[in-house]
C-alpha cells in the first residue's frame, strides 16, 4: 500500500498526507535538536558543568577567581576567590565592582568578612588572613539574564575581570 493513498471516500476523515510528511520530518529534526540540547546541558554549555567552570588569574598570580562562565538566572552558584602570597596586607581587603553586584544577589560569603566598606564604585570586604593566603567563597545568584562583567581584586593590588553569560 502506498503512502499517498487517499482515505476511503465514505470515511469522513480530515487526513492530509503532505502535512503528515512535514510533521514526520519536523519530528526527526526535533529529535536531533533535543539530543544536541541535552548534550550541551551535560557539557555545561547551558549552565553549570565541565565546560562552564573556568578560572581567571591576575598577571602576577596573586588573585585567582574560579567561576561559572554560563549561569542561569535565579540559580545559586559560587565564585571562589583564591588569594596567594605575597599578601602583606593585614587585614586582607578584597574589592568587588558595584556594577557587578547590581546584577547578582550575594547570598553568603565564606568565611564572613570582619567588616565591609561601601564606595560609589565598589564594595570592599575585610578578612583576617594568614601569610599563606586565603580562599574566599562567594555564593551568589544572578538576578536576571544578561552578560554581566565582573571585576574584583585586592585593594591596592592586582585585580581580575571576567564576563559571564546568564541564561533566563
Amino acid at each position: 500500500m502506498q503512502i499517498d493513498d487517499q482515505p476511503p471516500a465514505h470515511l469522513q476523515i480530515d487526513q492530509d498526507l503532505t502535512h503528515e510528511e512535514r510533521q514526520w520530518k519536523a519530528e526527526r529534526i526535533s529529535r536531533v535538536i533535543m539530543l544536541l540540547i541535552a548534550t550541551a546541558g551535560l557539557l555545561g554549555l547551558l549552565g553549570r558543568g565541565p565546560l562552564s567552570y573556568t578560572s581567571v588569574r591576575s598577571a602576577d598570580g596573586t588573585i585567582e577567581v574560579r567561576y561559572h562562565r554560563f549561569e542561569r538566572a535565579l540559580a545559586s552558584s559560587d565564585l571562589v576567590v583564591s588569594v596567594k602570597p605575597p599578601t602583606d596586607q593585614t587585614p586582607l581587603a578584597i574589592w568587588i565592582d558595584q556594577e557587578y553586584l547590581g546584577t547578582v544577589k550575594l547570598e553568603r560569603i565564606t568565611p564572613e568578612p570582619n567588616w565591609s566598606e561601601v564606595h560609589a564604585d565598589r564594595v570592599v570586604l575585610y578578612f583576617d588572613a594568614g601569610p599563606e593566603g586565603a580562599v574566599i567563597s562567594l555564593r551568589q545568584q544572578a538576578l536576571g539574564p544578561g552578560l554581566p562583567q565582573a571585576q574584583l581584586g585586592i585593594e591596592a593590588g592586582s585585580s581580575v575581570s571576567f564576563r559571564q553569560i546568564v541564561y533566563p
Binding site: M1, Q15, E20
Partner: peptide
C-alpha cells in the same frame, strides 16, 4: 488548525496495518 493540532491519520484499512504510517 493543522499546524497547531495536527491531523488524523488512517493507519489500518480493511484489517491491514499501513506499515510506513505505523512505523513513522
Amino acid at each position: 488548525e493543522r499546524l497547531l493540532d495536527g491531523a488524523p491519520l488512517l493507519i489500518v484499512e480493511d484489517g491491514r496495518l499501513i506499515p510506513e504510517r505505523a512505523i513513522r
